[in-house]
Structures are given as structure tokens and as C-alpha cells.
Design a protein around this nucleic acid. Structure first.
Lengths: 347, 347
DNA sequence: CTGAAAGCGCTAACAC
DNA sequence: GTGTTAGCGCTTTCAG
């Protein structure tokens, strides 16, 4: 592997001139520049990233911190979504000449967090978080060392943390309102994940606010904690119909849950949307596939904005108030909620 | 951020002793060692990766080269699969203290490949490839500079390249044979992707060999080039049934195609498996969901083996013959092929 | 067992 | 415009 020294020697200039030519950090005579670039080409020279990083104090990597791939949340309950996110991030990273370091935490909580290690060792210049809940241990440490990071699909109200997310409260409020407008009174709610996920909390509050604004008290029998499985949607239905207070509509937490609901309905000979109206979140391929009304959560846009924000943080000198960017999103009305005609679930 | 110097000063030893203690590269008195580690803890010291990389000539990163996330192949036509792969790779990388650098190529072919840049700049110590076809430009360069890399889900017969994959010829042969054994004579084939994907070629050859071994000549009217969409399965059916030679069974290239086939059949009132038997590949969640007989392609195992192989290459001093590791896989028989009873597609 | 010192490849003053 | 040179933080001989 050739070094900057080799290039300098071969081109008959000093190493600083080569460096200036490569980085544009000082004017170099066109003639000289040409000679240098020819030599670089000929020697297949590529600056050593470690050497460069050592002096610039930049790794040119940004870390993306995701849940452990073993954990089912990693799939985000629909394919394509993670690809969308990566693309959104990758586009801006690529522009800036940055690479993406993918990391998740060790299963054992004994060792220090991988994130902190990456930050402290200078392996990454900033971090993008895609975790559903709040890990204060990590956050506090990052804030303390003033390390740049942005949360995606999650936000903090009690700590100065930058984030990009949709407005889950509003989204859920609209979903419930849509069903209320269609005349439903007994509307059930399935959380997208465990209750300690911020998204679960926000969505529940949006849902219950909508009901309350319509003078309907949320019924705890019509509440179910879901997860990212089809089965949880199915089980939610079992739960609701065993509770004695059968719902006429459901706000599901994820498209995949809605599919479970559809299955339950089909088995019981219930018609969607006549007997049960369904509204969900994600607006994924599943929603299209099964003709489910669903509220979009565009991960491409979220990733894109989060990355842009992170780069601002990385290059910023002076402190600044953290921002919580809200990505506009909307309800995609399909057959499952009864306001438009319903297609076959297999179409 | 504290450096090794700070630790040395605070612990009252020289920096080399600190280095020895951290890396275990020389014996250090237990007493001294204890003092050093306490200081490290207190200062939150973490060795700078660039400085370390500069002298050790290791980045402790391995690159995973994937298709551009914009391209639909990125999704591998089923969720979870990419997560499985990452987990397989991540487990062995984590053990070795390596991080994962995710990269894909720029859409414009003008600039030099990102891969080569990563390799030459020392940003990664090895590369794992997850691309469906053969890019000789890149391969040749990597071979020339003796850079360690392994192909996943793909292999080379004409170049000395290490790879980990299932035996697609064999898999496809078995799929077709299974249908032949059930008495089918008119068996159609849908490729999993474009014909320049090696996997498409291998699968077609496996399929046609099985037919020929049963004295059946593959009918070109029963051949269709699919992709990773449900629609391509649907269109394949339109094609087959318009061709004048309706098939009684299909070897689909991907589970998602099989779903498209199911849709077509349902719309036309055809019964699966009575009117059309379907066998597919991937054995993904879709296959389970829709009760599709499918041949497994376990990405966890592929990733795991590829990573292990790559680390062997990285640490190896002397040259060695490239290996093509074949991961055992098998046909998961479900309702769609007619040899077991069929469940409802929504279960 | 521990310390002194060279040097990895590069950037960025600073001279000229 | 270009060259000289001092480090960046670490590992690793080599002495002692």
C-alpha cells in the first residue's frame, strides 16, 4: 500500500503539497496538481483513514445504534422499513463522505455499553439511535462528554436530546377521530409494543384524548398490549371479545397486528369493515397488501432528517437548544375502516 | 477525552506499561496493573481507535457490502432475513472486538468503487459481500491487493474467491423432484431475480436437471423471470396461463412470488394445491404465514460462517486455496404443494 | 517488570 | 506556491 510519501517522491514534490492538493487546504499550481493526481492514480494511492483520523480527530463514521438483531423489534414489523431508514441516512452520509457503522448492545449488561466505547474511542463522530425506549445511563454519559447524537422514532421530554419522529400523539388522535367520525363508539386500542416504549405511551394518549373529546371514556377492557407479531393482534381480539365489551373498531399499533386481527375476524366469520373497522400504523407493504387503513411512519424521511441534524451537531461549535423535529405524516385510508370499499385481503 | 499519557501520569507509570497492561502484551505486576485499571476507570479512558489503528494497521472494522438500499433486492423479499444475517455476522465480529461497517456502492459508476476505497484506506480489515451478481472489476482489484473478502449467498467458479452459500442447484433440483414425485409433469419455473444473478442460473439448472432426469423436457413457455415482488409471481401466472401450456405446479423463486401466485389462483377460483401446487425458496415468515412449502436459505448460518471464514483470512499469513462453503438446507413441506393438508392462507 | 524513544501516515502551522 | 517539521495517541522494540 502506497503512502503520501511515495506519492510525493514520485511526483517530485513535498508531502504537504500532496496533502494540500488532495484536501484543497492550500492553493497548488495547476501543473503540480495534475502531476500529483496522475501519480495518485498510478500508485492507487488512498489516504490512510487511521492516520488522517488521528490528526483530524474525525473518524468519518457515524454510528447507527439499533436493537439487537435477535430481538424481534429489529425487524420493525415490516420489511423494507429498515432499508428505507438506511437509505435516508446513507444519502446524506455519502454526500459528506461518511461511512455507517452499525452497532447494537451486548446482551450482557455487565460490560460497558458498546455505544460509549464507540464514542470514547473516536470510532464514530456521531450517533443515530433507533431504540424504542429511554436508556438514561447511556444518554447521560453522552451528554456529559458532549457527544453528538440524534434519536430517531423516539424523543425525550425530560432531557436535552435531539430527535426526529412523527407526532405519535397526533397520529393516534387522528386515527381514533377517523373511526369516531364513522360513528364508532366502542373503539379498542392495541399498543405497538411494551408500555415503556415511548411510542406506546404517546399513541395511547392520542387515542384516549380523541375519545374524551368525543365524550367517550376509554374502556380498559378495550386496551391491549401488543408487540410486533401478527399473533398479538389475534390475541388482542380474543381478549376484547372475551371481555364482555366487544369493540366495533380497533386502533392497531402496527400493520402486522392488523393482519392478526383480520385473521381472527375471518375465522369467526366477521366482516371487515362491517363488523370490525381497523386502523393501523406504519402504512407498510402489509397495509397495502391487506387493504388496511394505516397511518404512515416514513422511515426514509426520518433517517434523512436525523442524519442531516446529526451532521449539523457534529460541525457545530457553540451549544444550541436541542430540537425535536416532527415529520409530517398522514392517514392512508383503505378498505379496512369502512370509509372506502374493501378489497380482498389477498389483493 | 483522556489519553494514555493521562492514565500513565495519574497512575505513576510510563505509557508503555499502561499499554502492556491494557493489551496484555507484556507482564505487568499485579499491583501496578490494579492501579492502572483503577485510573482508567476513573478517567473513563478508552484507547483512541485511530491512533491504535495507525500503528497496528488494523481498523477492527469489517465491511458488509450490500446492494443499494434503494434497489428492491435489498429487502431480500422478506423481513427478518437481513436481521438474521446481521446477527450471524455480528456474533462473531463482537467476539473479536470488531465493528460492522455497512456500505453500498454509489449509484453513479463514475467514481471509483466505495469498496475499493474502504479497502485501500484501511477503513476495514476485510469485506463481506452480499451482492447477487459478479462484479469482476472490484473482485480483480481486491484479489490483486490480496484483500480478505468472502461472498455470501453467491459464489465464483472462475475466480479464486471464498464464499458461503447454500447449494442452489441441489435445492432447486429437490424442489422440482418433490413436485415430480407428486405426479406433476407440467412444472413451471420462476427465477428469483434477473438471469445474471448466479442464484437464478443455478436454480434453473437444478430445476431443469430434475425434469430431464424424469425424462421431461423443460418447456420454455413455463419459464418466467421473476423479481422480489409479489406482482412478479402474479404476472408469471398470467404468462403461464396465456402460453397455452398451463402448468400444474410451480417452482417459485421466492416466497413473495408464491404469495402472488396464491393471489392469482384465488382470483381465478383455482385451488392450491389441488389445481396448482407451489414450492418456493427462503422459508421466510411469509412461507409460514401462507402455508407455502419452501426451501430454507438460512441467512443466520450463512452470515455466521462467512464471518468466521473472513476472520481466518484476516489472520492468515500464508496463502491458501479459496473455499466454497455450502450450508446445508432443506425443504419445509407445507400445504401449498399438496403432500400435506393445506391451511387457510390467512392463518 | 518498567521506562525511553522511535515511528505508524497524515495534517497544518510556519517558513521561505 | 511549496517545503520543513512538529505532533496526533498509540504500540513496540530495546535497555536496564
Amino acid at each position: 500500500m502506497s503512502t503520501i510519501k511515495d506519492v510525493a517522491r514520485e511526483a517530485g514534490v513535498s508531502i504537504s503539497t500532496v496533502s494540500f492538493a488532495i484536501n484543497g487546504t492550500a492553493p497548488v499550481a495547476p501543473e503540480t496538481k495534475k502531476r500529483i493526481f496522475e501519480t495518485i492514480e498510478r500508485l492507487n494511492y488512498q489516504p490512510n483513514s487511521a492516520a488522517r483520523g488521528l490528526v483530524t480527530r474525525k473518524s468519518n463514521n457515524i454510528g447507527i445504534f439499533v436493537p439487537h438483531p435477535d430481538s424481534s423489534i429489529f425487524t420493525f414489523s415490516g420489511n423494507q422499513l429498515f432499508a428505507n431508514l438506511l437509505q435516508g441516512i446513507g444519502e446524506v452520509a455519502g454526500e459528506k463522505g461518511y461511512n455507517l457503522l452499525l452497532a447494537w448492545d451486548r446482551p450482557d449488561k455487565e460490560k460497558p455499553s458498546k455505544v460509549i466505547e464507540l464514542a470514547r474511542s473516536g470510532s464514530v463522530d456521531g450517533l443515530l439511535f433507533l431504540i424504542p425506549n429511554h436508556d438514561h445511563t447511556i444518554i447521560d454519559q453522552l451528554i456529559e462528554i458532549k457527544f453528538p447524537f440524534v434519536f430517531m422514532g423516539n424523543h425525550y421530554s425530560d432531557k436535552p436530546v435531539d430527535s426526529v419522529d412523527i407526532d405519535n400523539f397526533q397520529a393516534s388522535y387522528e386515527c381514533a377521530s377517523h373511526l369516531l367520525k364513522l360513528g364508532h363508539k366502542r373503539i379498542a386500542f392495541i399498543s405497538p409494543g411494551p408500555l415503556d416504549f415511548l411510542v406506546s405511551e404517546d399513541r395511547y394518549e392520542g387515542y384516549s384524548s380523541a375519545l374524551k373529546d368525543a365524550y367517550i371514556e376509554p374502556d380498559e377492557r378495550l386496551f391491549y398490549v401488543g408487540d410486533d407479531s401478527k399473533a398479538s393482534g389475534y390475541r388482542a381480539m380474543e381478549h376484547f371479545f372475551a371481555s364482555g365489551e366487544s369493540p366495533s373498531a380497533i386502533v392497531a399499533g402496527r400493520d402486522v397486528q392488523a393482519v392478526g386481527i383480520l385473521k381472527y375476524a375471518k375465522e369467526r366469520g366477521m366482516d371487515i369493515p362491517r363488523d370490525i373497522a381497523v386502523v393501523s400504523f406504519e402504512n407498510s407493504q402489509l397495509a397495502e397488501m391487506y387493504d388496511i387503513t394505516s397511518y404512515s411512519t416514513d422511515l426514509y424521511v426520518i433517517g434523512n432528517n436525523a442524519a442531516k441534524m446529526l451532521f449539523k451537531l457534529i460541525s457545530r461549535k457553540k451549544e444550541r437548544q436541542p430540537q425535536n423535529v416532527v415529520i409530517p405524516s398522514e392517514l392512508f385510508v383503505r378498505g379496512s375502516c369502512g370509509s372506502v370499499s374493501r378489497n380482498d385481503p389477498l389483493s
